[in-house]
């Protein structure tokens, strides 16, 4: 029984209210029942109340999330038509085609840039940097993760949209969202590199392989699953970011075009969720599209995070 949760045998896990010690003497050495004084009712009740409250807390974590998911899915499923995915948005009606494309293009651009920077950063911090330089650089990206996304959007607006006269467009949105994604991928890279066994490096060193070759072909290679998971989670997070987009890509109903990365406002799903919702447009067609966009976004995010989980589990099973 004490092995029940996670293989951590512990006296703290004995039955509610019992004397911890009595549960841990199994088999032949079990003490006669009369040896221990009876457990007072107050003590039993206190224990029960405490754990009931804790269970209630867990229920309070799970219930609102389920409610949210059921609500968002329920709102969309009633009017769901598969062709919204390929129908163009026309004013406040139509489908989700342009916002869908916009989100995909913005997210892939941002993830591409962020991955390059983050993998280099994570690699440097984990393998090369030492001392105060390391803690300063690490602290920088950790604090960067705490900056509210709306502030990043405003900075993008001030410097790129207005400062460089780019106007609203793909490029400012991509750059701002890539800054948002950097901390997540960097953290994933750093921690999965730190988990690569030292013996790999020592073995490569003993064989006389050059350090950079070891780095590329041995160390990075075994960290790939962790890094990919980090990239997926970062994608899930930036794909739903709305606040920076109002300042950088804004909204329109044109197709995103790589030929016009500036001066062309680009639609995106998360902004559509807000902009077509009852709060901004009390029009039925628009609200249905907003619910559809929310559902598509939710599915994207859940699939990305679950995929990350699966990769972690798979790589753990196939390690060694």
């Amino acid at each position: 029984m004490s092995e029940r949760a996670g293989g951590r045998p512990t006296g703290a896990r004995v039955a509610s209210g019992g004397h911890g010690a009595s549960g841990r003497h199994g088999g032949a050495s079990r003490s006669p029942e009369g040896m221990w004084p009876p457990v007072s009712r107050r003590r039993k009740a206190g224990n029960l109340v405490f754990w009931l409250l804790c269970a209630l807390a867990l229920a309070l974590v799970i219930a609102p999330t389920l409610w949210l998911a059921v609500d968002i899915i329920g709102k969309a499923v009633g009017n769901w038509q598969w062709n919204v995915l390929v129908t163009r948005t026309d004013q406040l009606q139509g489908g989700l085609l342009q916002p869908l494309l916009g989100t995909l293009v913005i997210a892939s651009g941002a993830i591409l840039i962020a991955s390059i920077v983050s993998i280099l950063t994570g690699m440097y911090l984990s393998e090369y940097a030492t001392g105060p330089l390391r803690s300063v650089l690490r602290g920088a990206y950790e604090v960067l993760a705490g900056i509210p996304s709306i502030v990043l959007g405003l900075v993008g607006y001030v410097t790129l949209v207005v400062g460089l006269h780019w106007g609203y467009g793909l490029l400012p949105a991509v750059l701002v969202l890539s800054v948002l994604a950097i901390p997540y991928i960097t953290k994933a890279t750093e921690s999965s590199l730190a988990q690569v066994p030292t013996s790999y490096r020592e073995g490569a060193d003993a064989l006389g392989l050059p350090p950079s070759w070891t780095m590329r072909r041995i160390v990075l290679k075994s960290a790939v699953p962790g890094i990919v998971t980090g990239v997926l989670i970062a994608t899930a997070i930036i794909i739903g970011e709305t606040a920076p987009l109002i300042y950088t890509s804004n909204f329109s109903d044109v197709n995103p075009s790589l030929a016009h990365v500036t001066h062309l406002a680009v639609p995106s799903l998360p902004y559509m969720v807000y902009y077509f919702s009852f709060l901004a447009q009390p029009i039925k067609h628009a609200n249905i599209l907003s619910a559809d966009a929310a559902l598509v976004l939710l599915v994207f995010v859940l699939v990305l995070i679950l995929l990350g989980r699966v990769i972690v589990a798979w790589s753990r099973r196939h390690a060694e």
């Binding site: 949210l68 609500d71 968002i72 969720v273 929310a294 995010v301 995070i305």
Partner: peptide, 11 residues
């Protein structure tokens, strides 16, 4: 943790 804030806002 991954649910976009705009969806939480809508809810």
């Amino acid at each position: 943790a991954g649910i976009p804030s705009v969806i939480v806002g809508l809810f």
